[in-house]
């Protein structure tokens, strides 16, 4: 499916103008990018995976990003049937207690990757069965990949 067709299909799932529409962009990226709200994330993901037209069954990359003000997660999706790709981005402005919906019920691979994001960014994934730190020790303080993380002992600041 071409990027335009994908865009049309996804937009047709959210006809109600009361909801926030997913935002599309192709700027600065080789893939079609969808920006969505945290509330809509799981619904959108479910449709993306289960709808036979889109059929995004392969989540190949799940990245946590600290945008400075917001914390976000970037999902890279590919369909093994149609071989099209899509990037879904979600952001939350909450930094103290950021909560996003877990997608590990849709893609089992998200289980470990969400734990990694929790480990490094402190984003809590709701409905995750085993949300604990993946690489760092349990008693580690702070979330090291955040931009405001300070560790005077171990970090070299250039």
């Amino acid at each position: 499916m071409t990027n335009e067709a994908l865009q049309q299909t996804i937009l047709s799932w959210f006809p109600d103008p009361e909801f926030t529409q997913p935002q599309f962009s192709e700027e600065g990226s080789q893939y079609l990018t969808v920006n969505t709200e945290p509330e809509q994330l799981h619904e959108l993901m479910q449709l993306l995976k289960n709808n036979p037209e889109t059929h995004f069954d392969y989540l190949f990359c799940l990245t946590g990003v600290d945008y400075g003000k917001e914390l976000g997660v970037v999902y890279h999706l590919e369909s093994t049937v149609h071989r099209h790709m899509l990037v879904v981005k979600v952001q939350t402005e909450e930094r103290e207690n950021p909560v996003l919906e877990s997608v590990q019920d849709l893609w089992a691979t998200a289980n470990y990757h969400e734990r990694e994001v929790y480990d490094f960014f402190g984003i809590i994934f709701r409905n995750h069965p085993n949300l604990k730190r993946l690489f760092l020790t349990e008693d580690w303080e702070g979330y090291p990949l955040r931009k405001d993380y300070v560790d005077e002992m171990n970090m070299v600041v250039k």
Partner: peptide, 22 residues
Amino acid sequence: LPKGDFYQKVETARGEFGVYII
């Protein structure tokens, strides 16, 4: 690099290796 997101996947001996640069 220009502003934007860049993703490159390659096939290593173990599988799909991806580099995602913002």
